[in-house]
């Protein structure tokens, strides 16, 4: 039996804007297996980022349920949700969301401070992680002193600080040029392959197609179709052949 790490049941999200109600998600049902690399694809406004937020416990659905590791997220206490965000998932955002008052090293240690890891251990771990993403020589620079690609590397190191089993990446390459974007994708893919981290990425970057195990196409708040790796390879091959 497949090990389902994320499951959504009829997830609906509505935003109230004055007297209008915007239905961003209209009943989403997906299952994600442990160790998978999943890309949520769709045009902007399709609801993929909203779904991303629901899966990451960054927002609560209006209706429906989200299960992670078999736990119904709506039944967790505030403290459990904080612990979930701290230990179980790592987030990577389009705009990096680094704390600009903390150095690269300071950003990576912060989730470990929240987890109560002793200072010596967390400093070592931050150094290891920053070394791994190739920023060993810029550890004590502030985010403003780093390039976009370097900032995203810090964000990746930070996402891995507490050894999460899931990494959520929301448009991680959207603000980067093709070459740097490719490097970031390769880095994320290597986490998936070498460490078995489940990757859930919202994207419309076609470069992410050929590294994904499955692609969930989201349109108008619904799952339009789910494609798996074999179908994707054919499509990419065709595009490449022309």
């Amino acid at each position: 039996m497949a090990d389902i790490v994320v499951k959504t049941e009829d997830v609906v999200k509505e935003y109230r804007m004055g007297s209008n109600v915007l239905r961003a998600l209209d009943g989403i049902n997906i299952e994600i297996e442990r160790g998978e690399y999943i890309s949520l694809m769709g045009p902007s406004g399709s609801g993929k980022s909203t779904l991303f937020n629901m899966i990451g416990a960054l927002d609560t659905p209006t209706e429906g349920k989200v299960y992670i590791d078999g736990q119904n997220m709506s039944q967790l206490s505030q403290r459990q949700i904080a612990a979930f965000r701290c230990h179980r998932v790592g987030y990577i955002f389009q705009s990096y969301n680094l704390l600009h008052v903390r150095s690269a090293h300071g950003n990576v240690t912060l989730p470990m401070i929240f987890a109560g890891i002793p200072e010596k251990r967390r400093n070592e771990k931050a150094e290891e992680l920053l070394d791994m993403v190739g920023l060993g020589d810029r550890m004590y620079h502030l985010p403003d002193e780093l390039s976009g690609g370097q900032r995203q590397r810090v964000a990746i190191a930070r996402a891995l600080a507490n050894d999460p089993s899931i990494v959520l990446a929301d448009e991680p390459t959207a603000n980067l040029d093709t070459v740097i974007g490719r490097e970031i994708i390769d880095l994320i893919k290597s986490l998936n392959e070498e460490q078995g981290v489940t990757i859930i990425s919202a994207t419309h970057d076609l470069k992410m197609l050929d590294v994904s195990d499955r692609i969930v196409d989201i349109r108008d708040g619904l799952v339009e179709r789910v494609r798996n790796r074999e179908e994707i390879e054919i499509e990419v091959g065709e595009v490449g052949g022309h």
Binding site: D69, G70, Q71, A83, C86, H87, R88, I113, F114, G116
Partner: peptide, 22 residues
């Protein structure tokens, strides 16, 4: 199937840590 460890409760930070961050 892998283990389904229940989600633990988040701990409070020591006061000195908050002071240092602020």
């Amino acid at each position: 199937m892998q283990q389904r460890t229940p989600i633990e409760e988040q701990i409070d930070l020591p006061f000195m840590e908050s002071l240092r961050i602020s």
